[in-house]
Design a protein around this nucleic acid. Structure first.
Length: 615
DNA sequence: AGAACGTGTCATCTC
DNA sequence: TCGAGATGACACGTT
């Protein structure tokens, strides 16, 4: 308990500290993206933590599964698994799975008011109370404590169903069933969002994990059997462990009057298999949290937001809505409450509140919220105008890249925007990320570097354009074809500065794309040249090896020629039958193929001629 | 702290 | 002549 409180307090302090620091940085002109990296790291850690917890939970579920199977024994006659004679009270069995997963949930959420043990104790007391009353009111033939609860929930055909009154939303432990203190404790317990959250998760968990198919059920061969809880819920042989989820269903059924199609429950209990789908965990999430579950079940992101933002004093409130999140934007970060009080102030941050048009409700806010969280120092220095007014006005014009007003003003633009191919012409230069346009499901800080840089540039040009009150979006200025662009320009009377800025924006935008293409080409050229280099190196190696081979062959041929020469030379004899000395004579071949014996020692040309002719 | 890298921008050239 | 594209050079932020 103390640990949990401590953790929660420190977590809250962290949040406050982060908030304060952020505000200070905003005062200094720092963009929200400054925190991007840390935020991503934090997100990553949270993600890892969630994965670990999920792993742990799955492990526990497997343990429970094993434990449950251990409690089933095989009926040798029918081949079915039937529950072993109870070795522990059903109450303990019912509570155990809750305890396991709830423990995880509580450590995750820093449950505040009541500890897990207290909650479990309270549940146990409640279950006992319910047990006592129901064993008295419901006629059951099974003795022992284990049956009454489970029989109510599991509904074997021959067993009478509970009366509608018992199953109705009023089934919550009533004063006549429990002491006022206990009821008070129940109300306190149920008012805890952490417990509600845990119980909603527990509902899903227990529905999945404590309902095991029996061998005679068709799902027994299905490895995914655990996803079909109703199959076993309606099975008369279900182990008493199934009490837990069902009992919670009944117990909490009454806590939220508007929910829970009690008819569904009755039908469930009446064993209508087609209602299995209705008994998925999701409806129960809706049931227990009609206001908040839609967001909480929206995905990890929304969960994370709620975890991060609704920790302490706002724990009973719904998680931040989209508007709440945008109220964190710098424009009103200085005074969040102010926006709520004066939502229509023109100077209040952005067209978010000042222009409650459908278009300004989501995508524009997204873009603005992510792309223009304040400005960097350099950007602010560039601005000649009051940053505050610029920012607020800016959102009016550029939070939505294609504002209807703009479209109406520029008649051609409405037709242009209706031509998607023009946007597809340059897909690489889409300024507004589709995710952003769709309302920015992701946190604004989880953008990659390229995205951030693009936003910086975009923001700078947008702010410039805003400062000069240019009635087009930067996107349009850059991406429109020349004809459409000129047509658009011709329909507005822009002064010289505006025209220059528009031209600059267009030039920069075009040039940015050109630079990207240029670098891409350059890289491709480099890669191609590297390939050429490799092939040339291979060619060089091949030629070198061929050369060396040729040299070897040439040497061999020379050697053979030399031996042949010596052989021929050795066969030559003069008139006296003496051999010629190789040092004095050599054999030479003329062009016509005739062979001459040429004296090596240089003599007179005539004597040489005579000698040769004598051959 | 500084190198390496990526990206945006400007100046200039070419088409 | 103007506009768009290509590209070298530089600045700046990030890793």
């Amino acid at each position: 308990m103390m640990m949990e409180m401590e953790v929660m307090r420190s977590s809250q302090q962290d949040m406050e500290m982060i908030d304060i620091l952020w505000k200070q940085d905003i005062d200094l002109g720092a963009r929200r993206e400054v925190f991007d990296y840390n935020h991503r790291q934090k997100e990553h850690e949270l993600q890892r933590q969630r994965e670990l917890e999920e792993e742990k939970r799955l492990h526990l579920l497997r343990e429970q599964e094993k434990a449950l199977l251990a409690q089933l024994q095989l009926d040798e006659e029918t081949g079915e698994y039937i529950p072993r004679p109870p070795t522990s009270t059903p109450l303990q069995l019912a509570v155990t799975p809750l305890g396991v997963t709830q423990n995880v949930s509580f450590t995750e959420e820093n449950g505040d008011a009541m500890s897990l043990d207290e909650c479990l104790q309270l549940l146990a007391e409640t279950l006992e109370a319910v047990e006592e009353t129901e064993t008295a009111s419901v006629c059951l033939d099974t003795p022992a404590v284990s049956v009454p609860i489970s029989s109510n929930m599991i509904m074997s055909p021959e067993q009478p169903a509970l009366s509608p009154a018992t199953l109705s939303p009023g089934h919550m432990p009533s004063p006549q069933r429990m002491s006022p203190d206990l009821e008070q404790a129940w109300m306190e317990l149920l008012s805890l969002p952490e417990l509600q959250h845990c119980l909603s998760m527990q509902m899903e968990d227990t529905l999945e994990t404590t309902t095991y198919p029996l061998p005679n059920s068709p799902e027994v061969q299905n490895p995914n059997y655990s996803f079909y809880p109703m199959t076993t819920l309606t099975d008369g042989n279900t182990n008493s462990l199934n009490v837990a989820p069902a009992e919670f269903i009944n117990t909490f059924d009454g806590s939220v009057p508007s929910m829970a199609p009690s008819e569904d429950l009755r039908q469930m209990k009446a064993k209508t298999p087609q209602l299995n789908a209705n008994f998925s965990a999701e409806p129960f999430c809706d049931i227990f949290y009609p206001n908040t579950m839609m967001e909480e079940t929206g995905g990890p992101h929304s969960m994370e937001e709620s975890d991060d933002t609704t920790m302490s004093d706002v724990s009973n409130k719904a998680p931040y809505t989209t508007m709440d999140l945008y109220s964190l934007s710098p424009g009103d970060a200085f005074d969040r409450g102010k926006q709520n009080l004066t939502p229509d102030l023109p100077d209040s941050d952005s067209g978010i509140s000042a222009h409650p048009s459908p278009n300004s409700s989501s995508p524009g806010k997204s873009l603005y919220g992510s792309g223009s969280y304040g400005s960097s120092d350099s950007e602010m220095e560039e601005m000649d105008h009051n940053p505050g007014s610029v920012e607020s006005d800016y959102s009016e014009m550029f939070s939505l890249n294609f504002h209807p007003d703009d479209l109406e003003q520029a008649g051609s633009i409405s037709t242009l925007t209706g031509q998607p191919h023009q946007q597809e012409k340059k897909p690489k230069h889409i300024k507004v990320d589709p995710a952003e346009e769709s309302g920015h499901n992701n946190a604004p800080f989880t953008k990659d570097k390229q995205k951030k840089r693009s936003d910086v540039r975009l923001s700078r040009d947008e702010q410039r354009a805003k400062a000069l009150k240019i009635p087009f979006t930067v996107d349009m200025i850059i991406n429109l074809p020349v004809d459409d662009f000129t047509e658009m320009m011709s329909k507005h009377q822009l002064n010289e500065a505006q025209l220059a800025l528009v031209r600059d924006i267009r030039r920069r935008g075009k040039n940015k794309v050109a630079a990207q293409n240029c670098r891409k080409r350059k890289m491709e050229n480099i890669v191609g040249l590297e390939g050429d280099l490799d092939s040339l190196k291979e060619e060089k190696a091949r030629l070198q090896s061929e050369k060396s081979k040729n040299i070897t062959d040439l040497k061999e041929m020379k050697r053979q020629l030399n031996s042949l020469y010596l052989e021929v030379f050795g066969m030559l004899r003069d008139e006296k039958g003496n051999s010629y000395s190789p040092s004095d004579y050599s054999l030479q071949q003329s062009t016509d193929g005739s062979i001459f014996l040429v004296p090596r020692i240089k003599k007179t040309y005539n004597s040489k001629e005579n000698h040769l002719s004598s051959l």
